[in-house]
Simulated assay, not measured.
Amino acid sequence: MSAPFTSATSAYASAARLISEQASGRATGVGAEAPGGDFAQMLSQQLSNVVETGRASDQVGLDMINGQANIVDVVTALAETEATMETMVTVRDRVISAYEEIMRMPI
């Protein structure tokens, strides 16, 4: 039963590593930031939010297994994680769609 928890922990660690690598790469980048903010930074923050929401959901699940939480807390945490993931998937799909549209434009 520890395999799913190990897999989840590994996935969170990988995501956190990617976020920190991206953040360190942006810190040494050249160029001025846009007045409205950096799109890559916004995506990085949202990805961090997804990771943290998943960690919180896992912790509530572990608390329930240990008898320290009730089923309503687990369902609520899972619903929040699902909503956050769906938002990121939607953003990803729209970015890919925009990229494909740009690639179809004549030069």
Rank of each mutant, 00 (worst) to 15 (best):
D63H: 08
D38A: 08
E52L: 06
G36H: 12
G67Q: 05
N66Y: 11
L62N: 06
S24Q: 06
Q59H: 07
A27E: 03
A40R: 12
F39T: 15
V51T: 08
L62E: 09
M42A: 15
S48T: 13
A83E: 10
T53D: 07
D38C: 07
N66D: 13
V95N: 08
E52Y: 05
F39D: 09
R26W: 07
P35V: 04
A34P: 01
G61F: 00
T6Y: 02
Q68M: 05
G61E: 01
E52I: 07
R17S: 07
A8W: 01
E86P: 02
A13D: 04
L47F: 06
Q22R: 11
A23S: 08
L18Y: 03
R92H: 10
M103L: 14
V50D: 02
A23W: 03
D93R: 10
Q59V: 14
I96A: 11
I71V: 15
Y12I: 06
S20M: 07
S24T: 09
V50Y: 11
V72Y: 10
T9E: 00
A13R: 14
E86K: 15
P106F: 13
T81K: 05
G25R: 11
R104K: 12
S2P: 00
V30T: 10
E86G: 08
I107A: 12
Q41D: 12
A27G: 01
E52T: 13
T28G: 03
G25W: 04
A32R: 05
V72N: 13
S10R: 03
A27F: 05
E21M: 09
M1R: 11
P4W: 03
G31R: 00
A3F: 08
V51D: 03
P35H: 04
A16L: 04
S20W: 03
A32E: 07
R92E: 12
G25S: 15
E52P: 00
A3R: 02
V51I: 10
S48Y: 07
Q22T: 13
M103H: 04
A8R: 01
F5Q: 10
S97Q: 15
Y99P: 00
G36E: 14
R17C: 02
P4V: 03
D73M: 13
Y99F: 05
T53G: 02
T9P: 00
S24N: 07
N49H: 12
L47C: 08
S7P: 00
A69Q: 10
T84C: 06
A3S: 06
T76A: 15
T76E: 13
M64G: 04
T84S: 12
A13W: 02
P35Y: 03
R92M: 09
M88E: 06
D73F: 01
D63Q: 15
N66E: 14
T9K: 04
D58A: 10
P35N: 04
V91F: 08
S44H: 02
T9D: 02
G54A: 09
D93N: 11
M42C: 05
R55I: 13
V89N: 14
T81S: 13
E100R: 15
I102T: 12
N70Y: 13
M42V: 14
V75G: 00
E86D: 14
E80I: 06
D58P: 00
E33H: 11
S20K: 09
E101D: 12
A40M: 11
P35W: 01
Q46Y: 05
E33P: 03
V51P: 01
